[in-house]
Design a binder for these strands. Structure first.
Ligand SMILES: [Zn+2]
Ligand SMILES: [Zn+2]
Ligand SMILES: [Zn+2]
Ligand SMILES: [Zn+2]
Lengths: 180, 180
DNA sequence: GTAAATATGTTATAACATAACATTTCAATT
DNA sequence: AATTGAAATGTTATGTTATAACATATTTAC
């Protein structure tokens, strides 16, 4: 049986890898594997993936679009009354500390990490049309940044690379191809 | 007479150019040349650099540290009562449209553009110690980003590259050298 | 001068985030 | 199983950043 993941991957480059979600991919798999990975990592690290944290992570993974803290809050269902902002912000902080999500600075929003456990700075492709964001891992970008900074005598500790544009799914050429 | 600009420029790379402000540089020159450039560009483009816009631009240029909208607002001196947020946000929008300033997404703050008129995406080195930000123009970073995105079938329209770290002035090695 | 376009004033509110302190839950130790 | 200290969550209030909507004033073109 073929794998359920279906990503558009145009791998002309050997140093870059991308995962822009295809419109018809099996998203349930994205969610379940991300959740399982989180459970495993947290167990391994002896940190607690509590109900709230688990719920927030699952909500973040509801789509491949970065999601805002207050959207999460709206969908966080406590038994009784509505949760308050600190609840979700604390969960987000935990998840970022554990590398399970990334914050998209240019959107004030959060997205699941495609490869937690691997310590890395996120690089993102953000489609201004469909709103999806894909995490890029491109060594050449890292290398170019490292060199550019070094030439300025600057040591980079936390790079933010967020590339807004149009994804393959939303490109005019591809628009008519097939898609529903 | 030697030029009054004094920047730390370690030009090992031919494709990158940087301007991290030296601690003792003649900042009055930074301001006056930025203001003159703005006057010229606006005249050339037949857009109005009004009192408010001029004042906001000058405030942005008060330092090489990105500055928040409400800080600007606090220092915007109308004759009578205090200005309101839309006043400063409109001025910022104008200045960004004209390429005279950049917005630093990771700080929700604004900084003067070192080369307005040249249409470009900003790349920034932001010192987490002194707070200064320097605009980097590095073709290799642009190229690497373009290639990485292309490999993913993604067309970049608005790249955000903000590199937080420690600048040469604030590096421990350089700290004792001399500096006041 | 009149009209249209541009810029600013003004009021209100939306959207994003954290400080401070009380209470509960958890896990280790006795 | 009670004690206890640490970690997590609840709760209230407030801080910070940004925009919507509509009124007024200023500039420019005719
Ligand atoms: Zn998916
Ligand atoms: Zn990641
Ligand atoms: Zn610039
Ligand atoms: Zn510094």
């Amino acid at each position: 049986m073929a794998p359920s993941y279906r990503y558009t991957e145009t791998s002309k480059s050997s140093s870059a890898s991308t995962m822009f979600p295809d419109h018809e991919h099996d998203h349930g798999k994205c969610v379940s594997s991300a959740m399982q990975r989180a459970e495993d990592l947290c167990a391994e690290r002896s940190v607690r993936l509590t109900d709230i944290r688990r719920q927030v992570l699952e909500l973040v993974w509801q789509s491949h679009n970065p999601v805002g803290a207050y959207d999460l809050l709206d969908n966080l269902h406590g038994i009784g009354k509505r949760a308050q902002p600190p609840t979700v912000y604390r969960a987000l902080e935990f998840l970022m500390d554990q590398g399970l999500i990334h914050r998209i600075e240019s959107l004030n929003a959060y997205i699941g990490c495609r490869d937690p456990g691997e310590d890395h700075a996120g690089q993102f492709l953000i489609c201004r049309d469909c709103g999806a964001a894909a995490e890029l891992v491109d060594k050449r970008i890292d290398a170019a940044i490292g060199q550019g900074a070094k030439a300025a005598g600057f040591s980079v500790e936390h790079p933010t690379v967020e590339l807004e544009g149009v994804c393959a799914n939303c490109r005019p050429e591809h628009k008519g191809t097939k898609h529903g």
